[in-house]
């Protein structure tokens, strides 16, 4: 029997950490765009976002297996899902957009992208918070 609780607990941390790291790299690269390492940071943020999107697939699949296909639920479980699904959708969308556009962003595009990255990070953080609450109140991940 596959220990989905342990797998989900392990897999969720990759998209959370990578997305937040990618967002931080984007903001630092914009704030210090004239410095030599700004280009390198944009590259790091791109790969961070791409791997966060890929890792989120594993987190979602293990979560669905863990909950036996219960995609919504009530209480902390419901709140976890209310933030997970927008975070997942936004993360995938941002990764695809970044893959298409790369560094050829207009000023408006860049601003919109940064705002959405912050929003996605907020959703992911909230989903992680309620996931943690589930853990403490008996969500099953030891």
């Amino acid at each position: 029997m596959i220990p989905w609780d342990k797998l989900h607990g392990a897999m969720t941390h990759f998209p959370i950490a990578l997305l937040m790291f990618s967002t931080a790299c984007d903001f630092v690269s914009v704030a210090f765009k004239k410095l030599s390492f700004a280009r390198g940071l944009r590259l790091v943020s791109f790969y961070g976002l791409a791997f966060a999107a890929l890792a989120s697939l594993g987190a979602v699949v293990s979560g669905i297996a863990l909950t036996k296909g219960d995609m919504w639920g009530r209480g902390d479980f419901g709140w976890h899902h209310r933030f997970v699904w927008p975070a997942f959708g936004l993360l995938v969308a941002l990764a695809v957009w970044r893959l298409v556009v790369r560094d050829a962003m207009s000023r408006t595009g860049l601003c919109l992208y940064l705002v959405l990255m912050l929003l996605a990070s907020g959703f992911v953080a909230a989903a992680g918070y309620f996931g943690g609450e589930l853990l403490l109140s008996g969500g099953g991940v030891p």
């Binding site: 669905i64 699904w85 997942f88 959708g89 936004l90 995938v92 695809v96 957009w97 556009v101 207009s106």
Partner: peptide, 27 residues
């Protein structure tokens, strides 16, 4: 926004919606 960005946005929204629909269907 440039035409490339708009194309990217269309691809992004389409992919995201498809993946979410597939996820909920599979669930």
């Amino acid at each position: 926004m440039t035409s490339l960005e708009i194309k990217g946005a269309v691809a992004a929204v389409t992919t995201s919606v498809l993946i979410l629909v597939a996820t909920f269907t599979a669930g």
